[in-house]
């Protein structure tokens, strides 16, 4: 079943003299139980898309979309209050700096307990509700792999490590049994071992609870092996989307190809101090976006036609936006 269906999502920032289009007509759809990766360099608008879905963008940004359906309900047409209710019931989000996302003046127990909705405790009598809530908090902590629940529950966020904070965030996120978990670069602040733990946790949540995950990351190799579908973004434009495997094996867009190439393959044997492959140039700042295909100035395949924004084309469940795709024979 289609959980999320977004057409032509555009996010704009109004400045004094112009309108900057940070995200340009993105299409995104997500099925139940699917792990979808949103990949791109920093500044490509990945986080903006996630925040636009949950409605956490502040007033400076204007969000427009032809449709943004959540299980058939158009979120764009709802009042903010109704939208907040639907979104908070079914969608949970975890962020890249977990310790900043926890209230510094409340202890962990209160913060997790708060995210357990009252409906879950309906059949418990009012008097034992407090202890029932506490039991649930402990169960949630165990579920995310925190064994020492006594200590963590009575701690304040500044007393815990980033890794534990992120696990607490995940515990808070799954407290409502959401259908979709949006993970916005959840492992950026973590060490490698904790990073692996968090990924394993998310993977098991997806497999055991059939929870969809929208994974936002700029590290391709980490999500490549467990995401089902993938979206590659560049500068707020969709570059290529499709099943992860086919995207990796047969990239149609020069940017995707560059991304795949830039992953150092140690099995192939890289010689000592060999230069790694990287696309020349850097991602342009939002204030100086090129017209047409935004990859234009950096693209190895660019030609004159690239000053016009390419139309998204589809073939075999694979969508790409390029005038000169890497299809043999074309």
């Amino acid at each position: 079943m289609q959980l999320l269906d977004i057409r032509n999502l555009t996010i704009e920032l109004k400045t004094a003299d112009s309108v900057i289009r940070a995200v340009d007509r993105i299409n995104l759809s997500l099925k139940e139980g699917e792990v979808h990766a949103l990949v791109g360099e920093s500044g490509s608008g990945k986080s903006l898309i996630a925040k636009a879905i949950v409605g956490a963008l502040n007033n400076r940004w204007t969000v427009t979309a032809d449709r943004m359906h959540w299980q058939g309900v158009d979120l764009m047409r709802l009042s903010p209050e109704k939208r907040r209710k639907i979104v908070s019931k079914d969608i949970a989000m975890i962020y890249q700096e977990p310790s900043l996302c926890l209230d510094p003046t409340a202890n962990i127990e209160d913060q997790i307990a708060e995210s357990i909705p009252d409906e879950f405790l309906k059949d418990v009598s009012i008097f034992s509700r407090r202890s029932a809530r506490k039991h649930r908090v402990i169960a949630l902590l165990h579920k995310v792999g925190i064994r020492d629940h006594e200590k963590v529950m009575s701690s304040y966020p500044h007393e815990l490590s980033e890794g534990i904070c992120q696990k607490v965030m995940i515990a808070m996120a799954i407290a409502r049994n959401p259908k979709l978990l949006i993970a916005d670069e959840p492992t950026t602040a973590l060490e490698t071992t904790t990073r692996a733990q968090v990924f394993r946790l998310l993977k098991s949540l997806n497999q055991l609870k059939n929870m969809s995950v929208l994974m936002i990351s700029h590290e391709l190799e980490e999500i490549a092996d467990w995401s089902h579908t993938m979206h590659v973004l560049y500068c707020g434009q969709m570059v290529e989307a499709g099943p992860t495997a086919s995207l990796f094996n047969l990239p149609l867009h020069p940017y995707t190809q560059a991304l795949v190439k830039s992953m150092p393959d140690f099995e192939q044997g890289i010689t000592h101090k060999e230069a790694l492959y990287a696309l020349k140039g850097t991602i342009p700042p939002l204030a100086h976006l090129p017209i047409g295909c935004r990859l234009g100035p950096r693209c190895p395949q660019a030609q004159k036609a690239c000053v016009v924004t390419p139309i998204v084309e589809r073939s075999h469940g694979h969508a790409y936006a390029c005038h000169f795709p890497l299809i043999k024979g074309k």
């Binding site: 956490a56 907040r84 908070s88 995210s115």
Partner: peptide
Amino acid sequence: NFIKTARAKGLSQAQLIIHHALRN
């Protein structure tokens, strides 16, 4: 950020201000 997170948790504006914003 923690206010945004709390909002995403499904707290109403009043709850948000009383429980999280005010104390801080």
